[in-house]
Design a protein around this nucleic acid. Sequence first.
DNA 1: TCTATTCTTGAATAAAATGTGAACAAACTA
DNA 2: TAGTTTGTTCACATTTTATTCAAGAATAGA
Lengths: 227, 227
Amino acid sequence: MDKLKILVVDDEIRLRKLVKDFLHKNGYDVVEASDGVEALDLFFSDKSISLIICDIMMPKLNGYEVVKEIRHYSDIPIIMLTAKGEESDELQGYDLGVDEYISKPFSPRILVARVEAILRRSHALASSQILSVGGISIDPDAHEVKVDGKQVDLSYKEFELLQYFMINQGVALSREKILNQVWNYDYYGDPRTIDTHVKKLRSKLGEKGDYIKTIWGIGYKFEVGQE
Amino acid sequence: MDKLKILVVDDEIRLRKLVKDFLHKNGYDVVEASDGVEALDLFFSDKSISLIICDIMMPKLNGYEVVKEIRHYSDIPIIMLTAKGEESDELQGYDLGVDEYISKPFSPRILVARVEAILRRSHALASSQILSVGGISIDPDAHEVKVDGKQVDLSYKEFELLQYFMINQGVALSREKILNQVWNYDYYGDPRTIDTHVKKLRSKLGEKGDYIKTIWGIGYKFEVGQE
DNA sequence: TCTATTCTTGAATAAAATGTGAACAAACTA
DNA sequence: TAGTTTGTTCACATTTTATTCAAGAATAGA
């Protein structure tokens, strides 16, 4: 009952389910609406909603109209989803009071990270902290990694992957799981892509690259090793 | 990230409510038991409990007896509550495996601080249900096996096989059954393959390899041996 | 004790998974 | 647009694991 409730508005049921799953796994309650009218109904009848994630392109009322309506009465944080190639007039959106844009397709990690960041801002929750394990420290806000205090340049994917590894320190992660969390939800490519990224990560981390262990037949595990 | 669940055991309903409130506010899920018997029932039926806070003085089973029983099967962190003026034989408690004592009355901050410290220590943060029998413990999440606390490297199949044995501790398993459970359903090879894996398992487990007993004409059985 | 089975073991072979470098494609910058 | 960086795929080398096999040891029963 302590969970924060998020309203997800999208006309695609598949995408709603997807988003709902990600958020559930991260400890949020989710209510769904399939169009703008339903969204407004839900929002005005349920005062416990803490954040809205809303697609732009929808039947009946589009995303901007929903935002406009809600902003007459509430400062609730709103994240807009924009489809690829969609004419997202972000400036208009920010004027209306949209807090953040996320473009589809996104990765689960990104979605959840944005949600947390916004809730942190509005709910004055604890700020995100620097993750530091075995001499590797990673700053999500600055998107910066240091190994023994020395900064290391990682690409975007490498950073995301390392962060996921470090958050799940000590847990054996299958390639499938990694793909599902770190890659966009529409990625159905070769799992061996991960191997290549791991290779690069290991080499960029130097000695500490050994923290990323290979679990034969399964995947990888980040572990600061005794042994 | 899912909330960690804490079992609170105390016969005083007021105190349980109090503790529950503190923990709730700090982001934990709480289940309650009002005496030792109920506590054991709950603990053994709910594998997701990460920590136990337990009063000493209780009807039916007192705190120490609860700890003793639980310690046969689990290393879950346990915090004992001692009433003021109560004769808390702390030495006995620590011997049994109590992680921490908190004496009543305590302040919310202290309670929560201790809980966090212990969870951090035991990094039960997202830890799994470790299966532990006769000095062999097996962690499915980390895909890691320890014999007397020392890590042992097993291949994937070896790991699966050992896990199956341990789950079916004390049960004689035919080769056919093992093949059906541990091997892919499309495997129609030589059942003797199992023998080879058993051989390797036994040798990697050292002395404790003897736990895997041969049942002549049938198969194998995992049993922590008296004899 | 002897014999027919059933297991154990080690070595050989087959199969599977991973590491790596390079090529290509896509996204981003200047 | 050209030039870079980043992400993905692929093929092949390498490593690790799984399976088979056969000889020798152990077991149960007569």
